[in-house]
């Protein structure tokens, strides 16, 4: 009886030591968690999550203050990647923060624009070019489609236009072959 007890305690101690040693020896030196989360977020900087940008949201997730399903531009795929990273169950997007939309870019109607610069101040990635009382224009390649410029415009001259699919950006679709149930001969 005592022998068995000692064996078990000894075994426990030994395995504990091995585990402790392994934890030190094979420690993974990775990016800080915030950066890893930030790398998954789509960087639209739209603030739909309730935080003023992707980095603040990443910080909030890392601190446990925000849930992983508050980013509509990241979509379900983004939630899944965050869940994988954090080792939690994926969950559906929280509709309170909006729904995923096809990638769009802002377009300024140059006939209406009054050159007020409000949109330039709103743009989180400096993708709008212009100056006071000068006509503004969106640099399409840099626009993240965050829609933050739409609301401040006093004359409603900014619209969001979904990106049109063209040949260089075209993707092969997932093969869906209709299941045809064969009738036995």
């Amino acid at each position: 009886m005592t022998a068995a007890l000692f064996v078990m305690i000894g075994l426990g101690l030994f395995l504990g030591l091995v585990l402790g040693f392994a934890a030190l020896k094979f420690k993974v030196e990775g990016d800080p968690l915030v950066d890893q989360i930030d790398a998954i977020l789509p960087q639209t900087q739209c603030g739909q999550c309730g935080y003023p940008g992707c980095k603040p949201y990443a910080t909030a997730i890392a601190a446990g203050d925000a849930d992983i399903n508050q980013c509509p531009p990241g979509g379900e795929a983004g939630v899944k990647m965050l869940a994988d990273l954090l080792g939690v169950e994926p969950k559906p997007l929280n509709a309170e923060h909006g729904v995923p939309k096809p990638k769009s870019v802002a377009v300024i109607d140059e006939n209406i624009c009054i050159g007020c610069t409000l949109c330039i101040q709103a743009c989180p990635v400096d993708a709008i070019l212009g100056a006071a009382k000068q006509m503004h224009t969106v640099i399409t390649a840099e626009c993240t489609g965050c829609e933050l410029c739409v609301a401040p415009c006093p004359v409603d001259c900014i619209t969001m236009e979904p990106l049109k699919e063209d040949i260089p950006h075209w993707k092969w679709r997932y093969p869906v072959i209709p299941i045809q149930v064969q009738v036995a001969a």
């Binding site: 993708a127 840099e142 993707k171």
Partner: peptide
């Protein structure tokens, strides 16, 4: 073909996200 073009699209999205991150950081 699907997996290839999806990978290419994701890499492209990743590149533009990285660009947006840099631009946002610089703006701040």
């Amino acid at each position: 073909r699907y997996a290839k073009s999806e990978t290419i699209a994701q890499e492209r999205a990743k590149r533009s996200a990285d660009l947006a991150r840099i631009r946002n950081d610089e703006r701040l």
